[in-house]
């Protein structure tokens, strides 16, 4: 029953696809190929391999996993650094007064401006891409962690102090858990940012990856290819976001129940 209702909610999707197909065929503009052509191109680009490998071909293996690894690697590194620095700034009023203006300034720099800088620094390669991703996505995580660590219930901290919890224990058992919802909000924003930066860093300096395929398709005026890569990027973004929400629901479930009982 639930499944049926779920499917029922998707009724507009096939309608849109059919209308899109008919409209693009009627239009006949090369820049807007019909969805069937895009799907066919996607099959050619990534799914011509043997059935034993689920039809995934070599080009898909050579391009998609490296992109995803760089994206997640950069994001995780930014998460680690961002949460650590954020907690520091959030718990120390002096540090936050000293460094907050710098943080806000660096955050205001549009990351693409620094692409050429990282390109000069690392030359073309994964280091440059990961550096771009880290620099671009660290700010929402840092600022949200600092905000979460700053606004902790006074009572919780005092209770921890009365029970004689050490500094480390307070960090792990009180500060970090109460900052988690805010940290996750930052992590979610930065995950979608990481996808954008992955694409742009691959468009500028790369010899493999989804962004490189996009560049390749554009250079050879392969319009269905451009559309196909955009669709695959949308699918990737959708999957990343869904996976993140699933993890968040698990991690934060205690938080919701804790809020309900108080």
């Amino acid at each position: 029953m639930i499944v049926l209702r779920r499917i029922g909610r998707l009724w507009l999707v096939p309608v849109v696809i059919v209308v899109w197909e008919l409209a693009t065929r009627a239009l006949g503009d090369d820049s807007f190929p019909p969805p069937s052509t895009i799907a066919g191109r996607m099959r050619e680009m990534w799914l011509t391999g043997p059935p034993s490998r689920l039809w995934i071909n070599d080009s898909a293996i050579a391009n998609i996993p490296p992109s995803v690894v760089r994206l997640l690697g950069g994001w995780l590194a930014a998460a680690l650094a961002g949460v650590t620095l954020g907690l520091l700034l959030g718990r120390s009023a002096l540090l936050s007064r000293l460094f907050e203006p710098i943080v806000h300034f660096l955050r205001a720099i549009p990351p693409p401006m620094l692409l050429s800088f990282f390109l000069a620094l690392f030359a073309i390669g994964p280091e440059m891409q990961v550096a771009t991703i880290i620099f671009g996505v660290i700010w929402p995580i840092l600022i949200n962690s600092a905000d979460g660590a700053r606004t902790i219930d006074r009572q919780h901290l005092d209770t921890a102090l009365v029970f004689g919890l050490s500094r480390g224990q307070r960090l792990w058992r009180v500060i970090l858990p109460s900052a988690t919802p805010k940290i996750f909000a930052g992590l979610r924003v930065s995950l979608s940012l990481a996808l954008i930066l992955m694409v742009i860093s691959e468009l500028v300096g790369s010899t493999e990856g989804i962004g490189y395929q996009l560049l390749d398709a554009r250079r050879s005026y392969d319009r269905p290819g451009v559309w196909a890569t955009i669709v695959i990027l949308g699918v990737l973004g959708f999957l990343l976001n869904s996976a993140f929400l699933a993890v968040e629901r698990r991690v934060l479930s205690w938080h919701r129940t804790a809020k309900q009982t108080t």
């Binding site: 559309w227 990027l233 990737l236 973004g237």
Partner: peptide
């Protein structure tokens, strides 16, 4: 929404 808008530059 999750389609990275940067990719649309090519399009």
């Amino acid at each position: 929404r999750p389609i990275p808008s940067i990719a649309l530059v090519s399009l």
